[in-house]
Amino acid sequence: MANKKNKHSRRQFFSKTVPVAIGTIGGVGLVAQSCQQANNDEEKISLLSADGQLVEVNKSALTKVPYKPVPPDEARKGIPGKHFVMVVDLARCRNARKCVKSCDHHHQLTPDRPFIKVLRMQDNKTSAPYWMPKKCFHCDNPPCVKVCPVGATYKRSDGLVLIDNERCIGCRFCMAACPYSARVFNWGEPKHQDGDRPYSPETSIPSQVGTVEKCDFCPDMLRQNKVPHCITACPNGALYFGDRNADSVTNGSETVRLSTLLKDKAGYRYHEELGTEPNVYYLPPVDRSFPFKEAPEGQPS
């Protein structure tokens, strides 16, 4: 691999080979990049297995674990019988930004266009500020879906609001309509993208210039009965995810009944008066796990 390419492709490389690279603690990912033998017809990579054995593997056998996301047409149908919801416990958020990072990583986003934003909220001058992780609210009465001229953004039976970026015409009416500013636009050519992957609205990868994107609740994970990446990334268990129909949500370590949680902690939704019926609930920032600390310098605010 040429030196120049090497420099830029580390992130990409990892994203392609994550399962292998994580699994093989011997550092396959790196070895594959640095110890590659040149002048071979079939590219070979020297690996050190955990047993201490040096083995040679074809590069093609190593890269990319095949991933088959659902095609756009299929992605218009929801997962039967489910209705997904998220609950954010504001008392447990300390702006650790792990959710943002894991989201950026799994959706191959650059830091300038994250799907998740952590807002510093302060309801009035005398009340205490708090951090509010904000994703797409996947409203049951979604303004964005109503205004879309081509049905590129749609509401599924399982509650998700997704975008088909192969149909989007880039009019940005949905961005104007969304009262929560949940949507991001690909103003320029997206960077750091794995263009070889087949596009699916369930992964939002690869992005396309001139189209709208947003938090998708990771439906590719949901299809595998796994929670979205941000949920597991949160070190404080502030994010719960689950099925409203089954009345249960989990933050990865504990599973609770949604109705009980909302009842006990007085869960609420932002801007109920707009009638958008969001599927993201918030628990008020009372009895906080952390004292409020302002964002460090350099963090965009």
């Binding site: 550092g27 990912g29 050190l48 990072k101 990583h105």
Partner: peptide, 16 residues
């Protein structure tokens, strides 16, 4: 996740 990669990277180097 990023720190995990860092770990893998370091371990990888060590192993090499």
């Amino acid at each position: 996740m990023k720190s995990l990669y860092k770990h893998i990277l370091i371990i990888g180097l060590v192993v090499i």
